[in-house]
């Protein structure tokens, strides 16, 4: 299935990536080649095969409902690019 630059632009929007106009053709070309490779999946008959999400058939372990974390805000916010009064700041969002 051929992929157009519009398709790639749409996927980039979903992924919140900005692809410069001048590289769009190249990105689309490489993208297409990867899709051609993964198209080999279609050679395999998977009728009735249960999808596998994890290598082992293990079950989720449960954690006791206990508070084990204390307030480490100052430390945890150190890597943050923009913080004020304990809030992370982003450009104004309009709801």
């Amino acid at each position: 299935m051929p992929v157009t630059t519009e398709d790639v632009a749409q996927v980039a929007l979903l992924a919140r990536l900005s692809i410069p106009e001048e590289t769009m053709e190249d990105v689309t070309g490489r993208f297409t080649r990867v899709l051609e490779l993964v198209a080999e999946l279609q050679q395999v008959d998977t009728d009735g095969v249960v999808p596998m999400s994890n290598p082992h058939d293990m079950e989720q372990r449960l954690r006791a409902d206990a508070v084990t974390e204390e307030n480490r805000r100052d430390e945890l916010q150190k890597p943050a690019p923009s913080v004020e009064d304990g809030y992370f700041l982003v450009p104004r969002v309009i709801d």
Binding site: D65, V67, E69, N71, R72, R73, L76, G86, Y87, F88
Partner: peptide
Amino acid sequence: ATASKIFSGAANKFGADPNSQACA
């Protein structure tokens, strides 16, 4: 109404100082 969060050991209380109850 659990004591801690669903996937972490941070407290699950209403009205704390901003981000004081958000662990890594």
